[in-house]
């Protein structure tokens, strides 16, 4: 819920904002009407990606940034529909 209060305060101060979050908390966050929400199909605690999924992190961020330009009204909610991927990834440290 904290992010909803912060998002509303930023908008009221004239700073456009986008919330990038797991869809797990969609109901309680959307009920607060932040201006723009990008929902990812990820477990709690992993809003952008699994660890070291650099490609996914970039994709999700770009989708959120795009929403800053394209949303035309408060309370805009968009679902990022590409699935969560598990590693290992190219940039993952060797855990042996």
């Amino acid at each position: 819920m904290s992010v909803g209060h912060v998002a509303r305060a930023f908008e009221e101060a004239g700073i456009p904002s986008v919330v990038i979050m797991s869809k797990v908390f969609k109901d309680r966050t959307a009920a607060m009407n932040p201006a723009r929400i990008l929902l990812t199909p990820h477990p709690m605690g992993r809003p952008l990606s699994a660890p070291f999924d650099v490609e996914k992190q970039r994709e999700v961020l770009k989708a959120g940034l795009n929403l800053l330009e394209t949303a035309t009204d408060g309370g805009t909610v968009v679902e990022y529909d590409q699935p969560y991927r598990t590693g290992p990834f190219v940039d993952q440290p060797d855990r042996r």
């Binding site: 009221e12 004239g14 309680r28 009920a31 607060m32």
Partner: peptide, 15 residues
Amino acid sequence: YSGPGNFEYDSKPFA
């Protein structure tokens, strides 16, 4: 975690 939480707002501040 479905359903609204303790805070619901009708207004939609938008910059």
